[in-house]
């Protein structure tokens, strides 16, 4: 039958639309984002559970530990809440890994690869949907903060910019978790792999306490790492104080994380 391959016959001409242009990439990404958001609304418990942990932290640090933690010049609840927002975004990003690992495990990625859709839409749609989800969750957490006495001390524009910093930070992290999600075989493994990465970043940070109270070596890291920088930027924008330094540092971290990990995640998707 291999001889038959040499037999000449006019093959189908290519269709007029290649389906790989930028316009299709945008359309496919929107379709995938819509699908991911729809799945989130079908599983409201996932959204609820991703709020339970931060709410427990709010209650614990606001009412249990808060009295023992002194932050000069600020109410502890004001200091705490931006840290909680970053914590929420950070642990919430694990959902990106879980979502992708699940799609891979269930064979959905296989089907998507056999469709004439844009190659970038699967990851793009995932990250975009998780970013939209972050906006919703941050707004809900701000409302919870208001209930326990959190008050912003700047103007609406700066508070919105603070939300923006958190969302951008979440976007950067999403690429890290996309890479994790594509590298493991199922949702449980994604969760197990993600927690040990995020826990030290979130807890060895300035999110809950002043790093100057930590041992020097830990404090040095806790002052400089991405979660702390995002927290610092959100605090500055929501509570007041110099914003340029922390905002720049946070954006640079996010840019660095995205620049390194997004190409790795995309490569991983293409190869797996």
């Amino acid at each position: 039958m291999t001889a038959a391959t040499a037999m000449a016959l006019p093959s189908h001409p290519p269709m007029s639309e290649p389906g790989t242009g930028f316009r299709w990439a945008v359309r496919d990404t929107i379709a995938m984002t819509g699908r991911n958001l729809r799945v989130m609304t079908r599983l409201p418990q996932v959204l609820v559970f991703s709020l339970v942990q931060p709410v427990i932290f709010v209650l614990m640090f606001r009412y249990v530990f808060g009295g023992a933690i002194q932050i000069p010049g600020r109410d502890y609840v004001d200091y705490l809440m931006p840290g909680i927002f970053v914590q929420t975004v950070s642990f919430g990003a694990i959902n990106t890994a879980i979502g992708l690992a699940e799609d891979k495990n269930k064979g959905l990625l296989e089907r998507l690869r056999s469709l004439p859709m844009s190659r970038s839409a699967v990851l793009g749609g995932r990250v975009l949907a998780d970013t939209i989800r972050n906006v919703v969750i941050i707004v809900l957490m701000i409302l919870i903060g208001l209930l326990v006495g959190f008050r912003t001390h700047t103007n609406l524009l700066l508070v919105l910019a603070g939300i923006g910093i958190l969302v951008v930070f979440g976007f950067g992290l999403a690429w890290l978790f996309a890479l994790i999600g594509l590298s493991v075989t199922n949702a449980e493994a994604a969760q197990a792999a993600a927690f040990p990465i995020m826990a030290p970043l979130v807890f060895a940070s300035n999110a809950f306490v002043d790093p100057s109270t930590m041992p020097d070596w830990l404090g040095w890291w806790a002052e400089r790492q991405p979660v702390s920088k995002a927290t610092e930027a959100a605090r500055a924008l929501m509570l007041g104080g110099p914003t340029a330094g922390p905002v720049t540092a946070s954006l640079l971290w996010t840019l660095g994380i995205t620049a390194v990990l997004a190409p790795l995640a995309i490569r991983r998707y293409r190869r797996s």
Partner: peptide, 20 residues
Amino acid sequence: QEVRRRIGLAGQYAAVDENL
């Protein structure tokens, strides 16, 4: 991409979204 336009894949490993 031209091949993908002309084929359908189904079976054991191709899947549908359970939540939709």
